[in-house]
Amino acid sequence: MGETSRITPVILSGGSGTRLWPLSRTARPKQLLSLTAAETMLQLTAQRTADVQAFDPPIVVASAAHADEIEAQLAAVGTPAAALILEPVARNTAPAIALAALALPGDAQMLVMPSDHVIADVAAFRDAVAVARSLVDRGWLATFGITPDAPETGYGYICTGEALMPGVHKVERFVEKPDRATAEHYLSTGAYNWNGGIFLFRADAFLAALDAHAPGITAAARAAHEAARREGTRLYPDADAFAASPSDSIDYAVMEKADKVAVVPVEMGWSDVGSWDALHALAARDDRDNAAHGEVLAIDTRNCLIRSDGPLVAAVGVQDLIVIATGDAVLILPRGSSQEVKRAVEALKAQGHVSLDQVA
């Protein structure tokens, strides 16, 4: 594969996004929503690789329930998928990526991206991808380390090792989400980056690593791919074969175990938009640090995220709150505690409540 050949973007769009409930639902998860711009998260992801000189049309791996919406959204921004691989059941990222790899020539370089992340500096992102290409063509598996700007405890970290070429290092190790003191230590050393879950590798190199470290996944993916049903650009892997796959992430199944793993540290204005607090940090705010969306009235109110996709929300004399209103649900919790949404989601699941599935 030469340096002038194009990369195939692989967009993973299988997540349910319940951390942003009640706006994000199983039927319409966060990647299909407009959260930080007029475009949806999926559309923004596809547009990052819309340069036809450098990238082929994307492969999208998603749930069959979202197929029509994904096709419509990508067509609306002129980035239709070359293939839409529709998982019959969720089996985490390693099996999903295996399905995409099996749909490509072995020497194809795959740029694997979550569908629901923010990247403010797209030029820096593309530059980082370009830096990794020659190493990837020699069989290395590359990931992109997000330059940390705070001792975050909600992200995994990558410890950088020896330099392999300018701007690229061998991965020393992947580390789990740390406590606060450990995260502060990581930040002080300058040797750690956040693990953003974005990867570049050849299809054959990834499948070989998966065969070596998680052969049950490749066996199931190959069987599902070989027995797949095709309808135009849609590919439906065999349900029974794919269901037999172990459920595992690419990090655990491959990246933490393979030998030739490289990291490209990059500052690109990245966020996984993993909570309402993260969205408040990204949003435009007034002089009292309020971020408002929809029909909102804020009087003597400070440091709040108030979003309404339904009724008028009037906030008077409050501070440090997250208030999210849809047509059928309202969420209220303190700023800084937005990860606690999961407690509401778990309680609603236990009740079998329809608001987790319905589109608000």
Rank of each mutant, 00 (worst) to 15 (best):
M1C: 03
R6L: 14
V10P: 07
G17I: 01
L23I: 04
P29N: 02
L32P: 00
L35Y: 15
A37M: 06
M41C: 13
L44Q: 15
T45H: 05
T49I: 13
V52A: 15
V52I: 14
P57E: 14
V61M: 01
A64Y: 14
I70T: 07
I70P: 05
A75H: 05
A81F: 14
L84H: 07
L84M: 10
N92Y: 10
N92F: 04
S115F: 03
I119V: 05
I119L: 05
R126S: 08
R126T: 08
R133A: 13
R133W: 11
G145A: 04
I146C: 00
T147S: 06
G156D: 02
L164N: 12
M165L: 05
E172H: 11
R173L: 00
P178S: 01
D179V: 09
R180F: 08
E184M: 10
Y186W: 13
Y192N: 02
W194P: 00
G197S: 00
I198L: 09
F201G: 05
D211H: 05
A214Q: 15
G216A: 08
A219M: 08
A219E: 10
A223C: 07
H225D: 02
R230F: 09
Y236W: 11
A241W: 09
A243Q: 06
A243D: 04
I250N: 01
K257L: 03
D259C: 08
V264Y: 13
H280F: 12
A281S: 11
L282G: 07
L282K: 14
R285P: 08
D286V: 07
D287C: 02
D289Q: 11
A291Y: 08
E295H: 05
I299K: 08
T301L: 01
R307S: 09
G310T: 15
V318N: 01
L321T: 13
S337H: 13
L348D: 00
L348V: 12
K349V: 12
A350E: 12
Q351F: 11
H353G: 01
D357P: 03
